[in-house]
Design a protein around this nucleic acid. Structure first.
Length: 500
RNA sequence: GGGAUGUUGGUGUAGUCGGUUAACACGCCGCCCUCUCAAGGCGGAGAUCACGGGUUCGAGUCCCGUACAUCCUGCCA
């Protein structure tokens, strides 16, 4: 049987990195087994679902390279009639019943507290009895009559009182839950008879022929309810694999409200992550390959991925919301830097181009006669960059003359030595005469000049770095001279003399 | 309250059928390299393997209990 999996996000916000990882694992599983990878947008919560969220999720998946869905995207809201029909069938078969109990109104914010309170009071004398509902055993005929008379009702699944539900999770192993712990869950809301999550998911998964449900561990306990629905519907249950959650540094749930943009996948795109690097990082959250590899290309990931390597404890996504340098997990940042400095330039360039274009730094010549210069320059500066953003930020001076000077760099490398005001222009003169303009020739000339003036070469080198790039750090200075070129170098040395 | 799941250095992970000084990556510190900063090389600090019992010649690995964390317990998804 071919493997068929689906990623099923609800479009109530941006794509959460935890969801992104779920998508990745589904994708890896499908691709590795020659199966189908499907996408289902769970937009049944009309209040909160937005088209913008859907777009953002699709964008995020595309950015990760996971948008090669094998079939049309399914929008769950469009299947509501099928979901309702399934529930109605269950009513006719006696596997579900109409509950005419008036619907209780409750404010969303109080839901959690209410649940807790109710549970506490219910656990008093004789425990919770979900089966006490007076409508549970209402004869079907009477139920039909009251419904026909227009009395509002919800549809609940009739859950057996004795026995237990069990399934084997690919990650969490054997799972057992006593029926007595499962209430007669609502399938259809009273009033508009709109389907509820558990019903919709099951009906859609059956219809889509899903063989493996890979999703977050937050659904683990509710899986038993869904299995009950599968059984009532007479369908075979898929195999389940639940993934450990990704937590915030304080081990709390990672949420937009509390943690902001770090949890949004698009943040990583917008802040200059290389998709392959982020995929690599994400894969390592809650999973490890047998051979202990860490840096893995997508192909290697496909080769090494196995559900057995997924572990059961939640992972902490480590970041600080006070220190901007630690805006996201340090290992993610490190990995991104690693990709940036080691990936083939031919792959880096297409990722970089949009950044340069947006910053107004892209030139037509980069595709022609300046291609070699661009390659050399990028290769030189990428060695110490962490994100794609750095190329147009710290790296701006390599591509444009209107770059900014870092205050600390100016103080440290230019203002510290007053003589530089006069040395720099003279260094410019000397360098203008260097022929040919090579790394070696420039170095020889600068060192000779330093000797002549009786100053340390380092003084001129560091001053030059700030003069030419605005920074106090960067690649070996003679490479910088080479790449910036004779004319621009000389001009910047002269201009920088004014900053001394 | 009930149920489920989990707990190895700051973080991510490895630790096979229980067997010597608990391994790797990130981060941190130092040294080397050096024109700066990285990278790279070398070295270091940091874990009584949540805690308490038990089984055993021997337990991170097995058993019981406790604590803590997360999730579920909804006519949300």
């Amino acid at each position: 049987m071919t493997v068929r999996v689906r990623f099923a996000p609800s479009p109530t916000g941006y794509l959460h990195i935890g969801a992104a990882r779920t998508a990745l694992f589904n994708w890896l599983f499908a691709r590795q087994r020659g199966g189908r990878f499907l996408l289902r947008v769970e937009d049944t919560d009309l209040q909160r679902s937005t088209d913008e969220s859907t777009r953002s999720i699709l964008e995020g998946l595309a950015w990760l390279g996971l948008a090669d869905y094998d079939e049309e995207i399914v929008f769950q809201s469009r299947n509501a009639d099928k979901h309702r029909a399934a529930a109605e069938r269950l009513v006719k078969e006696g596997k579900a019943y109409r509950d005419f109990t008036p619907k209780g109104e409750r404010a969303d914010a109080d839901v959690k507290r209410e649940i807790a309170e109710r549970a506490r009071s219910a656990s008093g004398a004789e425990g919770q009895d979900h089966r006490a509902n007076p409508f549970r055993d209402l004869p079907l005929g009477e139920s039909e009559a009251r419904a026909a008379a227009g009395e509002p009702y919800a549809v609940r699944l009739r859950v057996a009182s004795d026995g237990r539900s069990r399934f084997t999770d690919m990650v969490y192993g054997e799972q057992v839950r006593d029926y007595s712990e499962i209430e007669d869950l609502v399938l259809l809301r009273s009033g508009d008879l709109s389907p509820l999550y558990n019903l919709s998911v099951v009906v859609d998964d059956i219809e889509m022929g899903i063989t493996h449900v890979i999703r977050g561990q937050d659904h683990l306990t509710n899986t038993h309810k869904q299995i009950l629905i599968y059984e009532a519907l007479g369908a075979s249950t898929p195999t389940f694999a639940h993934l450990p959650l990704i937590l915030a540094p304080n081990k709390a749930k990672l949420s937009k409200r509390k943690h902001g943009e770090v949890v949004s996948l698009t943040t990583y795109r917008d802040r200059g992550f290389v998709p392959a690097a982020f995929v690599n990082f994400l894969a390592l959250l809650g999973w490890a390959p047998e051979d202990g590899s860490e840096m893995m290309t997508r192909e290697e990931l496909l080769g090494k991925f196995s559900p057995e390597g997924i572990h059961r404890s939640n992972a902490v996504f480590n970041f600080s919301d006070t220190d901007p340098r630690l805006w996201t997990d340090q290992k993610a940042l490190w990995m991104n830097a690693e990709y940036i400095r080691t990936m083939p330039l031919g792959e880096l360039l297409p990722l970089l181009r949009p950044w340069m274009e947006r910053a107004g730094l892209w030139r037509a010549g980069y595709e022609g006669e300046e291609a070699a210069w661009l390659a050399r320059t990028l290769d030189l500066i990428r060695q110490r960059f962490y994100t794609l953003e750095d190329f147009t930020g710290q790296g701006r001076a390599y591509f444009a003359d209107d770059f900014e000077f870092d205050d600390a760099a100016v103080r440290k490398n230019l203002k510290k030595e007053p003589r530089l005001a006069e040395l720099l222009p003279r260094l410019a003169e000397r360098l203008e005469r260097v022929e040919p303009w090579t790394v070696e020739a420039v170095e020889a000339e600068l060192r000779a000049f330093a000797d002549d003036e009786g100053v340390k070469a380092g003084l001129l080198i560091n001053a030059s770095r700030t003069a030419l790039t605005g920074q106090s750090v960067g690649p070996s200075m003679f490479d910088v001279f080479d790449v910036i070129g004779r004319e621009r170098s000389a001009r910047r040395l002269r201009e920088a003399a004014r900053l001394v």
